[in-house]
Design a protein around this nucleic acid. Structure first.
Lengths: 346, 346
DNA sequence: TGTCAACACGAAAACGTTTGCGTAACCTTT
DNA sequence: AAAGGTTACGCAAACGTTTTCGTGTTGACA
């Protein structure tokens, strides 16, 4: 087992100084052609590669981006990561991943671990618990210490930084408008509780779309669930709530679900209730997930372009890192949504 | 914006030496109670945290694990990562992620980037291209340089290192046995080409199970596809091939698919052909994915326990990293599969 | 022969830690 | 009062780089 070779070792072998070796490898003209060749040949032979850690220490930058997400087993987030990774690598950066598991404490700990020199900047999406507690001091302190942050999807106005969001409001309106133009009169929404900003915004979009089409919203048609559909139990519970919704409101002919789990659960319940999709009830989701395409019938959705969000986030962060001037002007980039029509709507 | 405070700055402020500060913070009894208190108070006030990079350089370890996977937008891999992250964090390690996108070159580049000091060891699953080319020198060189590797799922015998695999052979036999015991007589398999080791093993398990049940395999019932079902086009192509299979072999009453995409595609085709699942044809998949649970009918599968694979991989790697003796004895851990019965089988 | 530039290289500092060792200053003991 | 011990601290090296500056040698020129 041959350990990695260092400048010092090359220097000793070739009986020159460390600085000579370093310069020779960089083709510095201070060093004679002769010595340069000798050093480079030796370095190649022993497969010399500069030590990243030493470089990080010297240059005070790690060329690494820290990403903190609430959950990785989730198509949206893994697509975002892919986008981040794509542009990060292209621009010479690595990606280090931390999971908060939707927990405030883990979010804080993870950030503290990474903030002490391991990375140059953060890209993150806020955990639910943090959103609930509304405690954002760890973000603000990190920024105050000179480490830039880009937030995506689950953001918060209290923190001043670059942000990348999907246009949840407009996206929801697109969805509801689609249902309306396809003939739906009684449109239900299945959404999350309001503390998750995206849930709130999507609900708002639903309401606005109805209003603009002169349909008066009925509170009975708004189902807010606290549910991740992660365990089988959650799923059953969710289906029960949805079943209640349909039973109490027999006239529902359109459903807008703020994610694909809710949408698929709705379709499952509808099948059980012998309602045909899309003939009797049309369903539309809000997601980038894999379920939509493979569902039967396949699900019409509003795509969030998750990968594009990741790419944009990484661009913003790296641009910030590599900007010469110290000006702090923060952008909020809105990623447009897209209606993808499949079989669950007419 | 206050930059991160260093030992040197504290030393200067308090008019003591750097070493005194360092020792005081570690409660070294060489330093007087008085000075210790002063230093600690000051450090706390300015929120001193040791610089990880400097520590890495000094200790020659980064407390970071490099993970290289072919693809992150994939339930199996993201679950593995979650498992890795879980135990890594518990044991004080960070996780840095690289994606090979199934490309040999990207795999090599990613590994080279990380191998120069950024990480202490690798956990990886080999890209398809690498498996095809059968070029494993980058793994071997990395190991020779003293950096341990743990391979999971897509492994290769030519490389001597710790490995974590699922018992593909046994798992497949479980699946096929289940079909047989549920009354299937003509069982088809939809699998990948043989260079993907898991595809090969699962095919082999299928054959063995048939043999053990005195059913003679028919080559017509073995469909090997080169297909990731990633684009819509792939999906159509896949469905076409499967449709052909069913049309040419009308007596098929059981299908074993080596992943959930193939399984769902099969179910879709069956629906189109007006074959009832599970009454006329039973279907079983091999996966941990999210599709299976949400499909209609929900899919009976062989679960691979992906998260557990990740946990085990991380344990193996960290144990290796923290082992005192230099002995190289490599383990191969087999994660047992589990049959999860849902609606697609009787 | 003396002066100066060009050339080729080395010494050292710096990044932020940790730690073994050296050493003043004081205290105790005989 | 001399010897030895303790206390409380600083120095310096080490990890692996990069880069500025200093310097010895050579050759050209007057």
């Amino acid at each position: 087992m041959k350990r990695k070779v260092t400048l010092k070792q090359i220097a000793r072998e070739l009986d020159v100084s460390i600085s000579t070796v370093s310069k020779a490898l960089k083709n510095n003209k201070e060093i004679s052609e002769d010595t340069r060749q000798k050093v480079q040949a030796f370095a190649k032979l022993y497969n010399y590669r500069p030590n990243n850690i030493a470089l990080s220490l010297k240059n005070r930058q790690t060329k690494t981006i820290g990403v903190i997400i609430p959950e990785i087993v989730h198509h949206f987030f893994s697509k975002v990561i892919r986008g981040i990774e794509l542009v990060a690598n292209k621009r010479g950066y690595n990606v280090i991943v931390g999971l908060s598991n939707e927990s405030f404490d883990k979010e804080v700990i993870n950030m503290e671990m990474l903030a002490n020199g391991s990375i140059d900047g953060f890209i993150l999406s806020i955990s639910k618990e943090t959103l609930l507690q509304q405690d954002y001091h760890h973000f603000i302190e990190t920024i105050n210490q000179g480490m830039p942050i880009v937030m995506f999807d689950r953001i918060v106005n209290e923190v001043n930084c670059d942000k990348v969001i999907v246009d949840d409001l407009k996206g929801s309106k697109k969805a509801v408008n689609k249902l309306i133009s396809s003939g739906c009169k009684h449109i239900a929404i299945i959404t999350t509780r309001d503390y998750v900003s995206v849930g709130k915004l999507r609900t708002q979009g639903y309401l606005e779309a109805l209003n603009e089409n002169l349909i008066s919203p009925e509170s009975d048609l708004i189902l807010k669930v606290e549910n991740d559909a992660i365990s089988d139990n959650d799923l059953l519970q969710l289906e029960k709530e949805i079943e209640d919704l349909f039973k109490k409101n027999k006239n529902i002919d359109g459903v807008f679900a703020v994610n694909e789990f809710y949408a698929l659960a709705a379709m499952k319940v509808l099948r059980k209730l012998k309602k045909k999709v899309p003939e009797q009830v049309q369903v539309i989701g809000f997601t980038d997930g894999v379920l939509s395409r493979h569902a039967t019938p396949s699900l019409t959705t509003i795509s969030q372009h998750a990968q594009q969000m990741g790419e944009k986030s990484a661009e913003l962060l790296i641009n910030n890192l590599e900007r010469e001037d110290e000006e702090d002007y923060f952008k909020t980039v809105v990623i447009e949504t897209e209606l993808i029509e499949r079989e669950s709507t007419k």
